[in-house]
Design a protein around this nucleic acid. Structure first.
Length: 223
DNA sequence: GATTGATCATAC
DNA sequence: GTATGATCAATC
């Protein structure tokens, strides 16, 4: 176990030290086996980096680094540093979200302060050989927050009106709503547009790759 | 090739 | 079953 960082500077120092390591290197340091691929280990990279940086136990509530209020997001990238996947932000409190304001939303709470750790995610590269990139400590600019808020207001508003089953991944410019479930048979309490209680597929908010791509690009540090 | 819906492991 | 960590893979 690695102790939690007590300052952003300490977290930054630790994360910077990981840059350039391969996942095989880091797994060896933590005496952990490396999976052949991530099909049956989708969260493996995230947990590995969490543990290496001293994130609080996963059983607890957000943020990952409680003492300093920072969330960790590992993001799979191409060799050019462009995200290969969307980024999961949070699950959606379907029954309550209609009564929530943006400034108290889960989305803003999660994204207020984020340590991004890019990791090579090309499937043709063996997991153990994938290298960890330079970290980025980020907070949304006012423009970025406005973009996120615009989407959130639209999406949360529709969910609050019982329209969740009309939503799909194609909605939202920076933020989208997609399933977040064990499988397509999962259900959670919700309401339909008549206010009737129904069982609906659990959903989550995700950041589109173009949003994350810009965050990484604008914070790129050239060697 | 990019996108959206579906899915996987683990802890409690 | 719920919540954490996400990526897979069928389809557009």
């Amino acid at each position: 176990m690695i102790s939690p960082p007590h300052s952003e500077a300490e977290l930054w120092s630790r994360a910077s030290a990981l840059a350039g390591l391969s996942l095989g290197d880091l797994a060896a340091q933590l005496r952990r086996a490396v999976p052949q691929d991530l099909r049956r280990a989708k969260g493996w990279v995230g947990v590995l980096v969490e543990d290496a940086l001293g994130a609080t136990a996963k059983s607890k509530a957000d943020p990952d680094f409680e003492l300093i209020g920072v969330e960790l997001k590992t993001v799979p990238v191409s060799r050019a540093g462009v995200p290969l996947e969307t980024t999961f932000v949070c699950t959606i409190p379907i029954l309550d979200i209609g009564d929530v304001e943006w400034h108290e939303s889960r989305v803003l709470a999660k994204l207020r302060r984020v340590l991004w750790v890019p990791v090579l995610g090309e499937r043709e590269v063996p997991v153990a050989d994938r290298r960890i990139g330079a970290p980025i400590l980020w907070s949304p600019s006012s423009a970025e927050e406005a973009e996120l808020r615009w989407d959130w207001e639209e999406l949360a508003g529709r969910i609050g009106r019982g329209e969740i089953d009309d939503l799909h991944g194609g909605l939202g410019h920076s933020l989208q709503v997609r399933p977040k479930a064990a499988n397509s048979r999962s259900r959670r309490p919700g309401t339909d547009s008549d206010g009737q209680r129904v069982r609906v597929l659990p959903r989550g908010f995700y950041l589109r790759t173009h949003f994350t791509a810009r965050v990484l690009r604008e914070n790129l540090v050239l060697p």
